[in-house]
Design a protein around this nucleic acid. Structure first.
Lengths: 205, 205
DNA sequence: AAATATTTTCGACGTAGTGTCGATTAAGTG
DNA sequence: CACTTAATCGACACTACGTCGAAAATATTT
């Protein structure tokens, strides 16, 4: 078998690290970080508890690693709409569709991030940085919209962005697992459009 | 001094229980429940750790007791608007003003409730019951509005209520301590009105 | 393939927190 | 003042965290 890639095969350690991440992803989807013990994580990955610390500083570090991946996915999925202008419903719908799916499969994980709001710890700082980045991009979009004559000028762009982001995140967090996906997307499209543009877009009915 | 009330004076135990609640309120305003120890709570109230368990089952029980009071306050403050009909801006503004104030003084405490979303534990069940009650009342209001010819029919009343509630709660949770109170009220009045009625209310400008 | 370096593993230890028991002391009450 | 109820506490057993240093497994030279 010829060496197709110069990248060396994943070492034993790499595989163990991945195993820990897998166990954690699975567990944190249903349980809280607080109730998950390092023992479980290590045991699930086939190593002793103290060996765990060779790979991660703490269980929060594992969560952070997982969330990093997810937040990158979320940001990417939303880029087409965030980088556009005007009430581009198809793009918004597509973005929301992806987000709802991600929340359905990994909602438990994403929710863990909400569990630390205001604690001031590392995870909290990470989380609010992610939120802020999203809000900044949305603020820019709103300013672009307004410059192009779309939407109403009522609340400051930054305020509107904050609230729209809060609406989106909170609705997904609370209802992604409860309300049917398609309905959730429909509802959010209407709500966000109304929030951003003040009027309902011409109905196709 | 004549006996004005037949209610017997608070016993030593009653006072201790109150002391525990006071210490907890103060502490939980700035720190997370997880980082607060029973030792601290007991020490702050002038008793030993094991005596604490004479008064409360656990530290979560203390938090629940505090949150019960706050949620009752919140519900009461919002009643005038929730029980009304149509885009009654003064009532909405008053309700939001009260809520913002409560979040500013007790936000740390209220946020602790958000820290358990999806864990399925007692506090989580309590929290979602409170949220649901609010959503139900708002749903009723929206249906009343629509029957009276106010607002647009777009998303189902329940959906709109869920999202409006999410917007309100999430915005308060994230920004009550950051954005100036008056601006937050203004912003939320605009956003909620727009969400519920589709149009911006006639500007006074 | 032996010698060496590096990565990985683990048991033992110390620390901090939780919750329970039974014995003891303080407060109220007829 | 007896006596019943409320309140307090120390001691114990338990669970979890995080660190250290020594050993074993794996890679890398030579």
């Amino acid at each position: 078998m010829p060496t197709l890639s110069r990248r060396r095969a994943p070492s034993k350690g790499d595989r163990r690290e991945q195993a820990i991440l897998d166990v954690a992803r699975e567990a944190l989807q249903h349980r809280s970080l607080a109730s998950l013990t390092v023992d479980e994580l290590a045991g699930g990955a086939g190593i002793s508890r103290s060996s765990f610390y060779f790979y991660f500083e703490s269980k929060s570090a594992v969560l952070t690693a997982l969330l990093d991946g997810l937040s990158a996915e979320l940001a990417a999925e939303n880029s087409p709409w965030l980088d556009g202008t005007g009430p581009d419903e198809p793009a918004l719908r597509a973005a929301l569709h992806h987000s709802v799916e991600l929340w359905r499969t990994s909602g438990g994980l994403l929710r863990q991030a909400n569990a630390v709001v205001g604690t001031g710890n590392e995870l909290d700082r990470w989380r609010s940085a992610v939120v802020e980045r999203g809000v900044r991009r949305l603020t820019a979009r709103i300013e672009r919209d307004r410059a192009a004559g779309w939407g109403v000028g009522a609340p400051a762009a930054a305020s509107l962005a904050r609230m729209t982001s809060a609406l989106r995140n909170a609705t997904l967090a609370e209802y992604a697992g409860v309300v049917p996906a398609e309905q959730l997307v429909d509802d959010l499209v209407v709500a966000m459009t109304r929030l951003l543009y003040g009027e309902i877009p011409p109905a196709t009915v």
